[in-house]
Nucleic acid binder design. Structure first.
Length: 987
DNA sequence: GTCCGACCGTA
DNA sequence: TTACGGTCGGACG
């Protein structure tokens, strides 16, 4: 480098963040890869390279380099561990752009410079010094105030986004001090984004005024006592050391080791084809055209280069709600996407810098399988200081695996016994909080000593657990979230390994930690039974000795963290980001709150019903014994079969797979229809005892002592299709079809002054079918608000809808459902009790009238066979590996399930979206209605009497528009809603 | 004590 | 013909 040469230094890392926030979001058309910052970066580079003379810089560079931060940890952290500690993690759609911007730099044939342990700013300071010493001039492409200290008559800055040169006068104008005093100014003011303390109460204006008066920081500190303003004087004296430390932190290091000398930065000519290959891959069409013109390259001849991103993007399936004002979207949660990056990390870690998302996922998976997990090395934390140290480290790292130990599996009655944290694989701790001493006598034993008092531990944990810049990772977060919610802590943001697994691998095989650990880590976890015993000898977790509790609980957190490292990158690699972030994660808190609310159940009504059922059943029992001629256990299918088909000699219908005669309701109904009295009685008895044992007897046991309400538990990852399931108790199978059964619903009541509102989708699955299979007649019928089963019957049997016999409609209805279930002649015949041939003929007729349905079914089967999975309209996948089975029965079953899954699953996704938006929509309308239950196509709310009329339209609106705008259905959704005192009348 | 099959309630 | 969970009886250890 010589006199007259001019070096351009681009602050690459700074540019990324600035461009991300300043420029409108932009995604690659073909797959939704976020590329806004990349686009801005490329446009700026191109302008500087081709057009610098016409910018505010006014000169053409001879040397050029782009500088990046290497990683979050620099020498500054050794002087001040809190440095940049409160910086939040980059937003998810920025993460893939770090790698892309490096690739862009290389495509522009420019040197890409970074150095471990140093920030980009230090490298820029070093190169600027070297260039000036060699006689050159320097322009730093950045507007970061941290770099302004470097400005002098040979060094200036250039804001590439505002096309504005920043020289000495501009610095003075902006900050009131010349560039050489910027360090002292920053030392006084501090910087909250970098967590530089400075002196409290001193901002830029005061700092400039003080420096004007006293000259520099040291003089100011030495003469602080002369300052007139009392508060200011006291602060400067008290925080003098803090200011000196701050000065150390903001002073850029201009003698960092460098790998490339100045001569390596000489600007080389552009490699047109290489650059165009990259720009085409990014789908930047206008820049591609400009570059092609300037470099004389034929862009059409050039293939896009394969672009590699660390995380890829939500590239698969429809781009769910990008840019939509969606109540579901948590404000882009600060989070890291996979664990290789630490909290502040503007840089891509070396692990993955050159990997595709798929390759990263694979390397993580391979590495995890090779690692041994030692459960004896976990820490047991018994004092607040140690706990605080772990919390601090978690806060600094930016993510932590978290798990709770309790004395119950029901989150609404569980008490916190302890909790565990994991910061890195193998690095976990257990914090016992309510363990009892094992030596307790019959009176129960006392609390174990040397445990951190619960309130102190919670107070210490709360800031971290609620810190937006610390990602909390759990397996089945809904449990831990609800538990901690009851202790006054609302965990956010979070990831849930169970839900990540579910978004990726829904299908056969569960998503429990034990099975995930075996599958992905090759590690058999300690079974709960091994530490707490089982059955009668089982003890509550608070009686487990601390050594074993630490191993068990520590392992839970450790395994969760390891699973997260393996599974999270797969989301991007396999295009499941949208499903996870839009349909899974936001539902956690929605469901947790529903579970916490519970529903009021009238104990008296159930008790009365139980009595009635017992009486009726007893009466029938006597008649059964009389007819059978002996007493036996009616509830035993085996004994019943012996009586019916042995002793009584009834003709057996079908057999079960164990070879027993079936005593199913269908068989008994057939016998009853043939005029036999006993089978009828059995059917009646079964119905009564079923209602009694499953509902009226069991439900009161679920009424919570404290709340007086029933709190069901929803499983988010239990089904292969995306539906929820409900248990403890299951409130998704409360009877409705028979008059006797319906009475149970009258026990589900609104609280005083409230009503229950039931809102359910009408025919949602058939509507989804009409949409995905694109069936004109069905779509028209729904658009016209017609009776869909009658329309089907009319089409199939050529009968007018008017005055249609109910039997004809019934058959069409059965066929419609059969279609959704992946119809077979055998199944339809069974359902309608008609010969198989007749059923087969129905199906043929149906396909003739609606040929699109057969096309859809064939296409779905072919897709499933090829890929091993099927997808909902929102991109949720259900896997059916057995669809390629050589066993025809197995194969046929999987084909039917694969046909059903996109329909059932799309409907499930739609109601999920409605639920995710509902709380906000109600709040926005100023309504206090609360969502209590979900029953697949129905939502149940509780609302104050006087708000009912205003609530129903809001609920309907949210539900009917739930697919929008991610998917615009070609069929309207219809929601029926009603309010009443109890669930029976509301539905 | 634990597991599985049969049966049956819901969408 | 799809998707679930709960209860019971009965066989296993």
């Amino acid at each position: 480098m010589k006199n007259g040469d001019h070096l351009f230094l681009v602050d690459g890392s700074g540019y990324i963040f600035r461009a991300y926030h300043a420029l409108p979001p932009l995604t690659r058309k073909s797959d939704g890869l976020p590329v806004g910052a990349v686009s801005g970066f490329c446009n700026m580079l191109w302008k500087l390279l081709k057009d610098a003379r016409n910018t505010d810089v006014g000169v053409v560079p001879t040397h050029f380099a782009v500088i990046f931060d290497y990683s979050s940890k620099t020498f500054r952290n050794t002087i001040y561990p809190e440095y940049k500690a409160n910086r939040s993690v980059p937003p998810e759609d920025l993460i893939p752009q770090f790698g892309l911007i490096r690739q862009a730099t290389k495509a522009f044939n420019l040197p890409c410079i970074e150095k471990e342990g140093y920030e980009a700013d230090d490298l820029i300071a070093t190169y600027a010094r070297l260039a000036v010493e060699a006689g050159g001039d320097v322009t730093i492409i950045s507007s970061d105030k941290d770099l302004m200290q470097l400005v002098n008559h040979k060094v200036s800055m250039y804001d590439g986004m505002k096309d504005k040169q920043i020289s000495i006068p501009e610095v003075i104008e902006k900050w009131g001090v010349p560039p050489e005093k910027m360090i002292d100014l920053q030392a006084l003011t501090g910087d909250s984004t970098d967590n530089i303390p400075g002196i409290p109460g001193i901002g830029p204006k005061t700092a400039a005024q003080l420096l004007e008066e006293y000259g520099d920081l040291d003089t100011l500190l030495a003469r602080a006592s002369e300052i007139k303003q009392q508060k200011r004087r006291e602060n400067i004296i008290a925080f003098a050391d803090q200011a000196r430390l701050s000065r150390q932190l903001v002073t850029l290091k201009n003698d960092t080791p460098i790998d490339l000398g100045l001569d390596a930065l000489v600007l080389e000519p552009q490699d047109g084809p290489r650059l165009i290959g990259f720009l085409k891959a990014m789908e930047f069409t206008s820049l591609t055209r400009r570059v092609a013109e300037t470099t004389g390259t034929d862009a059409a001849e050039i293939e896009p280069v394969p672009v590699e991103t660390e995380w890829g993007a939500a590239a698969h399936g429809p781009d769910l709600d990008k840019g939509e004002a969606d109540g579901s979207a948590e404000a882009t949660t600060a989070e890291v996407a996979g664990g290789s990056v630490a909290a502040s990390v503007p840089a891509v870690s070396s692990e993955a810098a050159a990997l595709t998302p798929a390759a990263l996922a694979k390397s993580r998976a391979d590495a995890a399988l090779g690692q041994k997990i030692d459960t004896t090395g976990y820490v047991c934390i018994r004092d607040l200081a140690t706990l605080q140290a772990w919390i601090d480290e978690a806060t600094e790292t930016g993510f932590v695996a978290f798990d709770t130990e309790t004395n119950s599996l029901f989150p609404m009655e569980a008490e916190l016994i302890g909790l565990s944290l994991a910061l890195a694989p193998g690095r976990a701790a257990y914090v016992p909080l309510a363990h009892k001493s094992g030596t307790g006598d019959l009176l129960g034993g006392g609390m174990l000593e040397n445990q951190i008092p619960l309130d102190q531990a919670l107070a210490a944990l709360k800031p971290m657990l609620e810190d937006r810049s610390v990602l909390k990772i759990a397996q089945n977060m809904k449990f831990d979230w609800l538990l901690m919610h009851r202790y006054g802590i609302d965990i956010a943001p979070f990831d849930d390994t169970m839900l990540i697994s579910y978004a990726l691998d829904a299908g056969p095989g569960g998503h429990g930690m034990d099975s995930l650990s075996e599958r992905w880590l090759g590690h058999k976890t300690i079974h709960y039974k091994e530490v707490a015993g089982s059955g009668k000898s089982a003890v509550s977790f608070d009686m487990v000795d601390l050594e074993r509790a630490t191993a068990y609980a520590g392992e839970d957190a450790d395994v969760t963290l390891r699973l997260w490292r393996v599974l999270k990158p797969r989301l991007a690699a396999e295009g499941a980001v949208s499903v996870y972030e839009r349909l899974e994660r936001p539902l956690v808190t929605v469901l947790a709150r529903m579970e916490a609310r519970g529903i009021s159940v009238d104990r008296q009504i159930l008790s009365r019903l139980s009595g009635e059922l017992a009486q009726s059943a007893a009466a029938i029992e006597d008649e059964i014994y009389k007819l059978a001629g002996e007493r036996f256990n009616i509830g035993s299918p085996k004994q019943l079969g012996d009586i019916l088909f042995g002793k009584m000699g009834f003709p057996g219908g079908s057999k079960t797979k164990t070879g027993q005669w079936s005593t199913s309701a269908q068989v008994l109904e057939d016998l009853a229809a043939a005029g036999h009295e006993l089978p009828r009685k059995i059917v009646d008895w079964r119905q009564l005892t079923k209602l009694k044992s499953t509902y009226t007897d069991a439900l009161p046991g679920y009424i919570n002592r404290e709340t007086g309400r029933v709190h069901t538990c929803y499983a988010m990852a239990a089904t292969s299709t995306g539906r929820l399931s409900s248990s403890d108790p299951n409130l998704q199978n409360i009877p409705i079809r028979t008059a006797e059964g319906r009475k149970i619903r009258t026990a589900f009541i609104a609280g005083p002054g409230n009503k229950l509102i039931s809102a359910d989708y009408s025919q949602i699955e058939l509507r989804v079918l009409a949409h995905v299979a694109d069936i004109p007649q069905l779509k028209q019928a729904f658009a016209d608000g017609m009776d869909i089963h009658a329309m089907t019957a009319s089409e199939m049997f050529n009968v007018p809808v008017k005055d249609m016999p109910s039997e004809v409609r019934r058959r069409a209805k059965a066929i419609n459902f059969g279609i959704i279930y992946g119809i077979s002649a055998f199944g339809l015949a069974n359902q309608l009790s008609i010969p198989r041939e007749e059923a087969g003929q129905y199906i043929r007729t149906y396909f003739e009238r609606f040929p699109g349905i057969r096309d859809y079914m064939d296409a779905t089967k072919a897709f499933a066979r090829e890929h091993g999975y099927v997808e909902t309209i929102f991109g949720r996948r259900a896997h059916y590996p057995e669809i390629r089975s050589s066993n025809p029965q197995m194969r046929a079953f999987n084909e039917r399930a694969a046909i059903n899954a996109p329909i059932q699953g799309s409907a499930a996704d739609i109601i999920r979206r409605a639920m995710i938006r509902m709380d906000d929509a109600l709040a926005e309308a100023g309504l206090s209605a609360r969502m209590l239950l979900q029953v697949h196509d129905e939502l149940v709310f509780e609302a104050p009497d006087e708000e009912v009329d205003k609530t129903i339209p809001v609920v309907r609106h949210v539900m009917e528009n739930a697919a929008m705008p991610a998917v615009s259905l070609s069929v309207p959704l219809q929601v029926d809603a009603r309010a009443a005192q109890n669930w029976d009348e509301a539905h």
